[in-house]
Write a protein that binds this DNA or RNA. Sequence first.
DNA 1: AATGAATGAGCCTTCATTCAT
DNA 2: GATGAATGAAGGCTCATTCAT
Lengths: 214, 214, 214, 214
Amino acid sequence: MHAQTEDVRTRLLETAGEIFAERGFSAAKVRDICKAAEANVASVNYYFGDKMGLYIETVKHAHAANFSDPPPQWPSGTAAEIKLRGFIRGMLMHLLNPTRPAWNAKLMMREMAEPTDACKQITEQYIRPMFCVLISILRELLPADVTDDKLHMTAFSVVGQCVFYRVQEPVARELVGEEAYASYAVDQIAAHIAGFTLAALGHSLSPPAARPAL
Amino acid sequence: MHAQTEDVRTRLLETAGEIFAERGFSAAKVRDICKAAEANVASVNYYFGDKMGLYIETVKHAHAANFSDPPPQWPSGTAAEIKLRGFIRGMLMHLLNPTRPAWNAKLMMREMAEPTDACKQITEQYIRPMFCVLISILRELLPADVTDDKLHMTAFSVVGQCVFYRVQEPVARELVGEEAYASYAVDQIAAHIAGFTLAALGHSLSPPAARPAL
Amino acid sequence: MHAQTEDVRTRLLETAGEIFAERGFSAAKVRDICKAAEANVASVNYYFGDKMGLYIETVKHAHAANFSDPPPQWPSGTAAEIKLRGFIRGMLMHLLNPTRPAWNAKLMMREMAEPTDACKQITEQYIRPMFCVLISILRELLPADVTDDKLHMTAFSVVGQCVFYRVQEPVARELVGEEAYASYAVDQIAAHIAGFTLAALGHSLSPPAARPAL
Amino acid sequence: MHAQTEDVRTRLLETAGEIFAERGFSAAKVRDICKAAEANVASVNYYFGDKMGLYIETVKHAHAANFSDPPPQWPSGTAAEIKLRGFIRGMLMHLLNPTRPAWNAKLMMREMAEPTDACKQITEQYIRPMFCVLISILRELLPADVTDDKLHMTAFSVVGQCVFYRVQEPVARELVGEEAYASYAVDQIAAHIAGFTLAALGHSLSPPAARPAL
DNA sequence: AATGAATGAGCCTTCATTCAT
DNA sequence: GATGAATGAAGGCTCATTCAT
């Protein structure tokens, strides 16, 4: 109760992430957050000034925790196709990872729907680096004279296919049925998106395994 | 006070959509909604039972207003490619329609992040019919022996590319810059997505502009 | 809907009695009353001005219905003991009658707890006549030179014993247990009170049946 | 603001008693109670959970304040008649106590008319102990082989006579006239009820004033 | 005469915040 | 530094009442 002083702040951040994600900003009650974090009712105001202060720090913290993985890297000379497949799989793993980030991603969704200052910060800090990696991979796969617009839209096509499974989950689940949706494996989805994308880019119509040299 | 009697309900629906979209369910106050709709404080409970009732109807109404167009139809014999291009363009027009939409789409985002009963109802009522049309188009473009899973994932790839521009708008805008993003025309995006998709399906390397060879 | 016009008023009165008795004045909702009476929501205000108007009329109506029985009468020359037994039994029948008056009596209780104008009116109109009968019976059973105070207090002793079973029912039920209380028959209680009273007055310690001439 | 901190709860209890008694549960407004108690609007929910919680505690408190005197005790060997006289007088003193009671009793009336959880609790906590004392006294005055029913009904006859003066006060006052009623002294009533009861039980024709013979 | 759609005052309750310790 | 008892602003909802028909 005295040595773990800094821990309270962190516990608050973690718990708040979960609860904000689950219920949204205004539906989340600071009392509930504090109780769940085994902290005092006044802790939020003490550590973060007010509820909004806690929220902003929470969003930052969530991103830091969720996207702190360094952008993927490959040995130079790795084939662009391999890198694209890896990138897509990594992204889906992040988005659909059922262990930790359940609420992390939900929180992000909210930010998208109602961007706060946190949104811009996060984009620059965590998303742009990933985006740049994707762009560089796609540049290898596209003709050298491709326009920036085309390049960006292609990247968006890749990202759009991936985030769909996160963003539209409830709808997709309803459309194909609970059972069918439950059977989707991350690897299966990743293979589909990568295959679809590579085919679109005029590379390989063959499934990953059939590739001669990896 | 007598001719516009039914209009109160409608005005409430419209105004609530705007406010729910802007602030979210719990942050939106029925008092504010009523004031904005020039309706009585009790109107919400009178017409919709309670706040949640208003919300559900609002979400439905938003969809109805935005997606009530009957699923697109083509003369029999129309080439599948033409239909797909039309479908994608129509979907983007809806999603990015600058006249009505602002809050309409935002509201949907919220529903995705935190699905309520409204979500299921809308999916069945408005989304599934569209989805079925897309599926039938894709069936023409895919091999006859394609699995349902593959068919569905392909549809999701199409839809994912489209909704990205709605869902991730703030991020996309930030990533490519305000100016570049503003220059994107619906037709340009639609052409990209259609071309990307048809290429992925191994069809057409032709439109949007009879590309020589890739 | 047009011929039964007067009936609505009456139905309202009856239903309101039941509901006012059950829930009290402010907890009773005019909507519920109207629905139960199959009358319009505005009927109360139409027929009685407002909710309080309905209440006052309801209390009057309830008493008229419940105590309209003429005060008991006996052939001249009937023994005072017989008359007292009859009086007590009649009073208990009224108070505990499980068929009609359940709510009638409850309503009266409320009036006692919080006397309105209706209370005085009722006392004069319905209660005093009964009280006078009791007094006249007791005068026969008490010495001629009894004071008025003594006479009144004796009457109150009789009445008090009777109303106890109505007024303190929940407590009595709890004290002796649900089962035992349920086994009390009106006749048994009446016999006890009459016997108790007559004994107190120095007449007969014998149970009613053992009386030589009836 | 610091020494009297506990007093808020108590002040609330006292004030609520007065107001609940005066207006009934639903007509009493927590705002009014808080204002009268010089407490915050949220105090009720803070201390008692909700309005009903306050009500229950209030009823208990009223009883505790009014009946908290330990059940009367007498030196062993005291004559049962003496004890009965004492018991009756004590009970009437409580019921008619002009210092505190006004609303206390009214509140009880309401509970009887519309029993809540509070009723049961009070019966067990405050009323039953008194009732047991009365029963034990009566057992001394009645034949050894008396049935439980008879014993209980006899107790009810005693209690009924007493509570009448509380419960039916408005009616009694009206029946005998304001003046006459005002002249009733507690001692006078107590003497009457005790005398009446003892006579009924076949004991004592002695007190209150060594009556020669009846 | 009688209705029922619509109103607005106001009630109970919640909840972020504060302040004395 | 950290707490938790207490606050007051405001929110959702109810309900008696009205008014045009």
